[in-house]
Structure formats: structure tokens, C-alpha cells
Design a binder for these strands. Structure first.
Lengths: 338, 338
DNA sequence: CTCCAATATGCAAGCGCTTACATTTTCTTC
DNA sequence: GAAGAAAATGTAAGCGCTTGCATATTGGAG
């Protein structure tokens, strides 16, 4: 591997006739350097095309200005919007985002977390709360700032910027109940290792119980997040002997698949079956009838998460618990039982 | 900033009663270490919970096993699928992916590239071919392996793993012409700094010229990539005095918006107006009528790009030019002029 | 048993940067 | 203009790791 000889701090120092320390100061704390010297040095930096070596800097400064995020998947838009906002806020503060995805596999997630930490991540954004105590211990041992998103808890040892999945589906289910629905179906993401998915189901069940509806009669089918898979699940649910009058979906992507399959099966939505989603992705806007779903303030979540992390870097004991409000987006895919 | 004292190579060496060099070898080239020693060392690594310091490693080894990608946006699914595949392939080879997004702004892109390089990226994946000579020079000076995706050129100094945007829309337009369309509209991404967008338009114009159709009569509207924006543009185009019989869209997202707006305007697709997309996102599958679009082998592109980059790390002069085939996905949103 | 090659390990010199501390320069103040 | 404080700069010691080279150990072959 022939790496070209790049200019180093020392080269700049020589060219500007100052010490390496001064050059370093010009780059990191320019206010502590005389204006004339600063000019001279920056001039040299420019003509030499110098850019600092990250490894050396990280090694010496014990800080990388890099933050990591491990998301379950990049493959669809669920996390994209929030992550984009997260990154924008980081960049605004001179930091960089490192993204890894776990394919919804806890072991891969753990690996990725370790990889990010090994790469010197100054902080981590993680999705959801369920993971092995080992990996939490690992992060804690190193005092790596961490924020958990897409879920909420007031657990004091960790920071959360998220929303209440349980509450959100609880409210949505209540609305469905008011519309007269008694027999529910639910298409969920795989629940194993996915606390958000479980909470969403729990919310529905709680609402049913609250209204003395037999929750055990609810068909729950698990699926990975894709439109096609959502459609298949919908079909399966609707072909049972006593199909539900409403199919709630753990996500808009699944709901889109369900709605599409509904059309194909010749079912009128919502007259013959209601469908609800979750996330309020842009995708939801093109469905017909318009999807009733749960709006999640993704961008705000990402932005606030960045803030929490940046704060936490400077104050290792800083913890924050932000529960963002979700709201029901009234489409017409949820309607009264006819 | 109180960073906990983490175990270092030296601690491991002491615990295992060997030298730091041996520990390093155990971690990097275990085959050059006696089995007994290896066991001893790995044991110590485990009990101490050692994990190597990235900065130090990068500094000493001049290699980070980190690759960077700068994409225009994370906000929608256009790049997600390809990037996901890219990452999967990297991870399979023990490397990590660093993602940054530029918001379609050349200056931000440049910044992000520099940041990634500064962070020691061993290689870069970039989207499209148009960027300032300066930044290309910067990359070349440092001999950073680079692969350009989502576009194609056989330009020998750089590697490409992409597809022919021009050819793809050329063929699609020809099909439309065969269907009798003579008056075209086009909703494009912003062309400035976006060679893919320009190529797609160029393809259509070339097809029109080929068939002696006045290409200058084609309305071209630029938009950012969002469903809502696509709808607005569609409306604008259709409300001109002589609306086109077909609206081609630079992207499925725009097409989705166009289709939705079409319905809202009470237009029958394709009888009153045809619509085409580009990318064959999963989104396209839920449109009704099914969207006629261009399939792009995103996953294969991502995977191959990773391969090229990994190869290029070991062989600095390695260059590769892969043009992946695109194909037309026959939906029914494109039909004969009635 | 030697002896020598092959294998395994240790030594120590950096990699390029930051930063505590020491030193020099500049600015105040009387 | 001298003295002391404040500001600017320099000196040099690492940060934790890899790796070329030297040294020690092992394993045949004779």
C-alpha cells in the first residue's frame, strides 16, 4: 500500500517558522494565538494542502467528534428522516455521524456498537431499549454518552429522546373501538428483540381490555418490514374464518402492503375493513383512502437526540428524558364498522 | 471529561506475560503466533475486556478499515437500498461504513468528503460524477480509493459501478413514442450539480430527436425529491395550455406524487395522461395503476462497489468500470395515446 | 547429540498530534 | 523606563498501537 507522503503538522510548522504546538493551537484554539501568527500558519496550511491526521488527533486528544448510530435497517424510510435530522444537527456542531445497521439482529447490533466504540465514537444513538446487559455494561464502563430513541422510559441512568409507543397505539385502538370495532387484527414487526413492536401491541391489547373486549381473539402476525410482506400478512389475516373488522399495522410500510392487498382482494376500505399504520411516512400520503396513522416527530427526535449527546460529551453525568408527543393522523382508512 | 481508564495493549501484555508485539500479532495475524500463546493472550483480552484503540491503530497502521459514502440525502429510499448492500458487503469483510449526506449541495458534499478523508476513510463511495476538480484532486493526491455509483463512464482514471441514466430514459421514451406520445412533460430533480438528472433528461430528448419530435416543446420542471413536490409539479405541467400526454418523472418518488395528483385532478392514468418513474422503489408497487418505471439493480450496485473499493485498497492502481443493466418495469401507468 | 533452519517472541522506534509546563515577548502601570 | 502581569510561543512528553529487526526457542536431519 503506497500511501502518498502527506504534509504533517511538522511540515506546516517548518513552513510557517513556528513550533508544532503553535500550529496545533491555530487549528484548535485560534483565539489563543496572535493574529499575525495565525495568518502565517493558515497560509502555510493552505499552500501545503495540510489536513490533520484523524488517528493521531484522536489518540492525542482522546476525542473524535464522531458519533455513531446503530439502526435496525437503512432499507426503508422508517429511520431515515430522524437520522437525517440527527446528522444535520451534528454537522452543525462540527461533528460527524457514523451509521451502522443491524438488520434487526441483536448480535449484529452488539458487534456494530463495539465497532463504533472501537472507532472512537464520542457518543451513540441507539434505537429502542432492549439489548443485552453486557453491551449496556460495555458502554457504561467506557462512559460513552448514549441516547435511546424511538422509545421512551424515565429510567434515570440512561437518556431517552423518544415517544410512547404503547400510548400511541392505545389511543389509536380506542378510536377504533369508538368506531365500533371489536375484532382486531395486528400486523407487527418481529417482536423478539424489538421493544417498540411489543409496546405497540401492548397498547392495543390494553385498550381492548379497558373496554372489556377479548384481546386474545386478536390475530397477531409478525412480518419483516416490506410492502409485499405486509400484503401477505393481511391476506392471511383476512382469510381466517372470522376475519377482523380492522387490521392495525405496526408500521406504515406494512399498512401500505395491507391496503394494496385489500384492493386486490376487492375489499372496500374502510367499509369492509379498516386499516391503520404507524409513523406517518410520506408513503402514507399516497394511499387511497388516506391512511389513518400515528404521526411521530422524527425530525425533532433526531435533532434533540443530537443535542443531548453533544451535551453529554461535556458533562458525563448529563441525562435527559424527553417524551415527544405523537398524534393520530386522521385518514379515512379507519372508519366505523358497517 | 473524565474518561475511564481503559485497558491498553500493554495491560494485556502484562497480564499474559508476553510483549505488546505479541499481543498485537495475536489480534492482527494470529497465524504467526503459537497456539498456546494465542490462547493465553485471548484469555487476557477477554478478562480485561480489552478493545483496541482506534486512533492508535490508525496512526500506527495507516489503515482504518473504514469506508465512507457521501449520498445526496438519507431522507428517502433512493440510496438506501444500494447503501445497505454496500454496507453489508463491507461488514462481511470486516470493514465499517461511514455515511454522510450532502443535501444535494456540492459544497457540503466537498466538506463531507474532506471530513471522511480526515477521519481516515480507506475508500470512498460517491454518487454521480460531477464535482469540482479540486476535490477530485484532493482525493487523487491522497490516493484514496474511490468508486462512483449511480452513474457510468468509462473514464479510465476512476472506477465506476453504475448504470447508464441516459440509455435508460432513452429507451423508456422510445417506448412512449411507440405508444404514440408526441408531447412530453418531465419532472426532474434539480439539474445543477446533478449529472444523473441531466442524463435522464438528455436521454428523453435524444429519443425525441431520433424520432423527429420537437424536443423543445417538452416542459421540464425541476423539483426536490418528495411526493408532495412531485404532485405540485405535475399539476403545473398539466395546467399549461397544451398539456403533455405523458409526464416522465426523474424518480419514482416524484412519479408517486404525480400519480396522486393525477387522481385528485380526476385524470385517468394512462388514458388521459401517462406517467413514468425511475428507480423501481418498493413505493412504485403500491401505485395504481402500477407504475411503469426503470428498474435499477441497486443492491448489486452497492455490493459490487464494495468489492471494487476493497480491491482498490490493496492495489492502488486498480480501476473498474461496471455498467449494470437497467430494465423497464412494465406497469400500466404508461399506455397508448387515446 | 549437534547444528541449522524455521518458527516464535521481544525490543524499540516511530506514527502525527495535543497539551502541561517552561520560556520568551508584549503590554501595563507607576 | 523598570517591573510585574498577561499573552504568545516553544519544549518535549506522551497517547496506544504496529512492525522491522534482533533474539530466543523449537524441530528435524544427520
Amino acid at each position: 500500500m503506497t500511501q502518498l507522503e502527506l504534509p504533517t503538522l511538522e511540515d506546516v510548522a517548518k513552513a510557517a517558522l513556528v513550533s508544532t504546538a503553535t500550529v496545533s493551537r491555530c487549528l484548535n484554539t485560534p483565539e489563543r494565538v496572535a493574529a499575525k501568527t495565525l495568518d502565517k500558519v493558515l497560509e502555510a496550511v493552505k499552500t501545503l494542502g495540510y489536513s490533520p491526521n484523524f488517528g493521531a488527533r484522536a489518540l492525542a486528544a482522546k476525542r473524535t467528534n464522531t458519533f455513531g448510530a446503530v439502526i435496525p435497517t437503512m432499507d426503508n424510510a422508517i429511520f431515515a428522516r430522524g437520522l437525517q435530522a440527527f446528522q444535520e444537527e451534528l454537522v452543525k456542531n462540527g461533528a460527524t455521524l457514523l451509521v451502522a445497521s443491524s438488520s434487526y439482529d441483536p448480535e449484529i447490533e452488539e458487534e456494530q456498537i463495539r465497532a463504533l466504540v472501537a472507532r472512537g465514537a464520542d457518543g451513540l444513538l441507539l434505537i429502542g431499549t432492549e439489548r443485552s446487559p453486557d453491551i449496556y455494561q460495555f458502554i457504561e464502563d467506557r462512559q460513552i454518552p448514549m441516547v435511546i430513541c424511538w422509545a421512551y422510559s424515565n429510567e434515570p441512568t440512561r437518556s431517552y429522546v423518544g415517544f410512547d409507543n404503547y400510548q400511541a397505539t392505545f389511543e389509536l385502538a380506542e378510536r377504533a373501538i369508538k368506531f365500533g370495532h371489536r375484532k382486531f387484527g395486528f400486523i407487527s414487526a418481529h417482536q423478539a428483540g424489538n421493544d417498540r413492536a411489543r409496546e405497540r401491541i401492548r397498547g392495543v391489547i390494553a385498550a381492548l381490555n379497558e373496554h372489556n373486549i377479548d384481546a386474545s381473539s386478536m390475530d397477531i402476525i409478525e412480518s419483516h418490514y416490506s410492502i409485499a410482506a405486509g400484503g401477505e400478512c393481511f391476506k392471511k389475516i383476512m382469510e381466517t374464518p372470522t376475519p377482523p373488522t380492522i387490521v392495525m399495522c405496526g408500521n406504515d410500510v406494512l399498512a401500505a402492503g395491507a391496503a394494496k392487498m385489500g384492493h386486490e382482494m376487492g375489499l372496500n376500505i374502510p367499509n369492509e375493513v379498516s386499516i391503520t399504520g404507524f409513523d406517518n411516512l410520506e408513503l402514507a400520503t399516497i394511499l387511497e383512502p388516506a391512511l389513518t396513522t400515528v404521526h411521530v416527530p422524527h425530525r425533532e427526535m433526531g435533532k434533540l437526540a443530537a443535542g443531548v449527546l453533544l451535551q453529554n460529551v461535556n458533562d458525563r453525568s448529563y441525562r435527559q428524558h424527553i417524551k415527544l408527543p405523537t398524534s393520530i393522523v386522521e385518514g379515512s382508512s379507519l372508519g366505523p364498522v358497517s
